[in-house]
């Protein structure tokens, strides 16, 4: 296991650390239908991503501290793993005609709504570009983790991790 110095001092993984864990998709992977992005570079005892996947495309195996491995040929991008991951470490990203999309887990109130103009943020919480909410899925099976889809300019697809949280009482 690598030392993950950036993760263990900054709090979020660097591109290098993701790359080393085989968890940084290439632009080719992200093109078109896109791919699932799992950012789980530490060996922790956890495998709900694996059990949530109806296709067997996400594998942790035994011991359950193994890092998850995605078989992109099996993944249908259904997104069930996004809300299943207790670490909120899974997103689905895609790039098409200069526009990027991200489907990500969201557990703050107020929930964003389709059409909202938002600020997209990177893994350190810094604003990187403007974005727009396309949909919000609060299905019961997601167990109170909403799955939100947002669109933003393709140039920022590798940096974007989430949206800026709206503060209570502010806009």
């Amino acid at each position: 296991m690598s030392s993950n110095d950036y993760l263990k001092t900054m709090g979020a993984p660097s591109f290098d650390e993701l790359e080393r864990a085989g968890m940084l998709p290439s632009l080719a992977d992200l093109a078109g239908r896109g791919c699932v992005c799992v950012e789980c570079v530490e060996e922790i005892p956890c495998n709900p991503c694996e059990t949530s996947c109806p296709q067997g495309a996400l594998v942790v195996g035994y011991p359950i501290t193994n890092l998850p491995v995605v078989d992109r040929s099996k993944c249908t991008l259904c997104g069930l793993c996004i809300a299943a991951c207790p670490g909120l470490a899974i997103t689905i990203k895609s790039v098409e005609a200069g526009n990027a999309k991200i489907r990500f887990p969201w557990e703050y109130l107020p929930l964003p709504a389709a059409g909202d103009e938002v600020e997209m943020v990177d893994r350190l919480g810094e604003a990187v570009c403007a974005g727009k909410i396309l949909s919000v899925n609060s299905a019961a099976k997601n167990n109170r983790t909403a799955v939100v889809t947002a669109a933003f300019p393709a140039a920022f697809v590798q940096q974007v991790a989430s949206i800026r949280r709206k503060r209570h009482g502010t806009v």
């Binding site: 709090g11 979020a12 670490g87 943020v121 990177d122």
Partner: peptide, 8 residues
């Protein structure tokens, strides 16, 4: 930590 960090 990543969850908290990306919240800024």
């Amino acid at each position: 930590t990543a969850k908290v960090r990306r919240a800024g």
